[in-house]
Write a protein that binds this DNA or RNA. Structure first.
Lengths: 168, 168
DNA sequence: TATTGTTATACTCTATAACTATA
DNA sequence: TATAGTTATAGAGTATAACAATA
């Protein structure tokens, strides 16, 4: 009997439910201004993961068409969170990069999420919390994703700072 | 230093990323027919959690407007996975319920996901896998969700069979 | 010829607001 | 009066397909 599999599947189901994501998302972006919403946030946080990046590459990273990236980047640019600069290595490309303000906002959302999680784990024995963090990490890295996400095999990135990519 | 919080936040970020959800979703619904897709699946699996249910209640459960539920339920009904029946307790309401075929399909997706997870945990010591399942469950139940989801406080449900509710 | 960013078009889906029926 | 399901409308967002520029 794959009892363990079912247990994890159920918990995962709760975790990935729309209401959960919406809640997490609003927690993260509350008070950050109009530019950062459910639509622009994946671009925003994706860019923080990859560093300066073309729209085409970022689209592959987050699973969106480059035309969609262009549109969402416009909003972030107007809000002063993102800037465009020509790619010195490729005359066709335009690099998208977070401004200092954008960087600061991303850092704030990361801190906010981490704090929220810490708070919700306040009643756990520290040892169990650490164990959980370690196992969850391994599960995500080796388990679920590795099992079938053959995307961008040459993903460069710079570490894997993952914030929550809400919605579509 | 909330190192643990950041670790979990990062893993959570990866888990909730769109590409991850899309992958999980396609795993679940592959070959299930046209009616079950990213849009109808939340209705489908939500109904499996709640049991026979009005469109308004189901909408509250999964975070969608009742008009949206109506439209998606139409598709599932045409595919023979869902049926409508008058609510004997309320002449205004129509109960949505899964047909036997629908029940079977939901069970199949649950099994599919559990098997996939079991497979991805094959190399783990069984003890660690069990520990992880237990901690993840607790995290989801007491931690993240409890910390801020004051929705449907009178949610009846019947157990909490959570399948993956993809997309919007 | 292939790929870049951007823009115009067609399409899908959504919530809002109607409507009728029942509590 | 309030809520049920359904339907029409208007709005937002997407991918597709173009475009000119560069590799």
């Amino acid at each position: 009997m794959n009892e363990t599999g079912h247990d994890i599947a159920d918990a995962l189901g709760l975790l990935l439910r729309r209401t959960t994501r919406a809640h997490l998302y609003s927690l993260l972006t509350e008070g950050l201004g109009e530019a950062v919403d459910e639509l622009t946030y994946p671009v925003f946080s994706g860019l923080a993961r990859t560093g300066p990046c073309s729209a085409a590459d970022l689209g592959r990273e987050v699973g969106l068409d480059r035309s969609t990236i262009t549109r969402r980047a416009d909003r972030l640019e107007h809000a002063g969170l993102l800037r465009r600069e020509p790619d010195p290595a490729d005359g066709r490309a335009t690099l998208l990069a977070l401004t200092d303000e954008g960087q600061g906002l991303v850092a704030a959302t990361r801190r906010r999420l981490a704090d929220h999680i810490e708070g919700s784990l306040a009643s756990w024995p520290q040892e169990e919390a650490r164990t959980f963090a370690r196992l969850l990490r391994r599960f995500v890295d080796e388990g679920l994703l590795a099992a079938g996400e053959p995307e961008h095999p040459a993903a460069p990135g710079q570490g894997r700072r993952g914030a929550v990519d809400a919605g579509r």
